[in-house]
Amino acid sequence: MQAQLVIDPRTYRQLKEQMGADFVRELVETYCHETGRLIEQLYQALAAHDSAAFARLAHSIKSSSASLGALNLSQQARQLELTGQTNDLSEAGPQLERLSSGFLKVKRCLEELRDEP
């Protein structure tokens, strides 16, 4: 049940049907790796008060998360993108923390789904 809340099962199933299970396995790995990297960069952008980079990185996470059915995470990333666009990162720290823990849930869930037959 947990898995269904974090990842939209319909999106994920369609992806598997359209692209093939092997490809989706590879995609999940890439997504997890890349998103982890992007979150690290978000922390760096926050530390550097670089709101443009902050918005762009959040935008990137928003986009790929939606593709994999991680709709909640995508929404969270969208909020971060909007924050970045205001040029004011003072409230961004807690938001980023939530995104970060949200991503861990997504990652776990995707790994479960990936290992399903």
Binding site: M19, T30, E34, S60, S64, S67
Partner: peptide
């Protein structure tokens, strides 16, 4: 596209 997941997805769809 700067996002690798997007590149992979689009690439796969187009190659198919």
């Amino acid at each position: 596209d700067d996002n690798k997941v997007n590149r992979l997805l689009l690439g796969r769809g187009l190659e198919q």
